[in-house]
Simulated scan of single mutants.
Amino acid sequence: MADIKAADVMKLRKITGAGMMDCKKALAESNGDFDGAIEVLRKRGQKMAAKRADRESTEGAAIAVVNQDSTKGVSIVLGCETDFVGKNESFVALANQIAEIALSVSTKEELLAADFGGVSVADKLVEQTGVIGEKLEINAFSKVEAPFVGSYIHAGNKIATLVGLSGAADGAEVVAKDVAMQAAAMNPIALNEEGVDASVIEKEIEIAKDQLRAEGKPEAMLDNIAKGKIKRFFKDNTLVNQDFIKDGKQSVAQYVKTIGDIEVVAFTRVALG
């Protein structure tokens, strides 16, 4: 049997995150071969992943990161099975590492195929399934590119948002973060009226008309009254038209204008569950 050195056990643990005894066993199984031990742990992860494939990964960590020049941001949800694992520092660190990799890709599929220390992100997730003992997967992936991009992560990594502004004026960092916080708290369905799907508008109009009929309003008046209700729907549910949560006397769009001729051009919101 190969002589298993403590330094090799520590090195394997640092790379894989596996426990000391698991690393020692893997090295023993591979007769001290370091690469072989990594493969042992990977195969263990594959078996664990297969066993837990039907589990729900509704807990985890929502992460948003922005590149150095604040022109590109990405948000992901790394899902796991329990809140206990989702709050673990090493799990959150893994989610952040994957989010940083995500800055260089365009889709979730590209992210899963991207390199993570010599293996794909997909293989890394399988490996870590074996280490952690829970199903891990990328549950959400979104990206924003704009002249200025800001981000916000809600306490506990439950929600992560990105906001793109049309310019990088003085104060853009504060404004973008404020609007990103707004998106996290108020969960708008679209950026503006144009972003609301026609089917959603039609459904809201029908709901409004049904309510008005129940109130005894004449049929001839329904269309005009319903239009007013739709305007209110847009105000409540589209980001730029919502009342700004830090100052209800102005809309989000009006708040953004306080730093110049700037507009919100994009936003994304990802959350656990």
Rank of each mutant, 00 (worst) to 15 (best):
V65A: 11
I76C: 00
A114T: 05
D115S: 02
A93Q: 13
S90I: 12
A64Q: 12
D115E: 09
A93T: 14
D54N: 14
K124H: 11
E134W: 02
E59F: 02
T129W: 05
A49W: 06
Q128D: 14
A53L: 11
I98K: 01
K87T: 08
V119T: 14
T71C: 12
N139M: 10
I63F: 08
I132C: 06
E81C: 04
V66Y: 12
E81W: 02
S90L: 15
N96E: 15
F84D: 06
K124Y: 12
L112G: 04
F84Y: 14
L112Y: 05
V74M: 04
L112I: 06
S106G: 15
V121H: 03
C80G: 03
S104P: 00
S120P: 03
K72G: 12
N139T: 10
A62L: 05
T58K: 04
I138F: 02
D83L: 04
V65H: 09
A122V: 00
C80S: 07
K51S: 13
S106E: 14
S70A: 15
A53H: 10
L125F: 09
F116E: 02
A122E: 11
R55P: 02
S90D: 15
K108P: 10
I138T: 03
V77L: 00
G60A: 07
G130L: 13
S142L: 02
V66R: 12
A113T: 04
A62M: 01
A113I: 05
S75M: 09
R52V: 12
F91N: 07
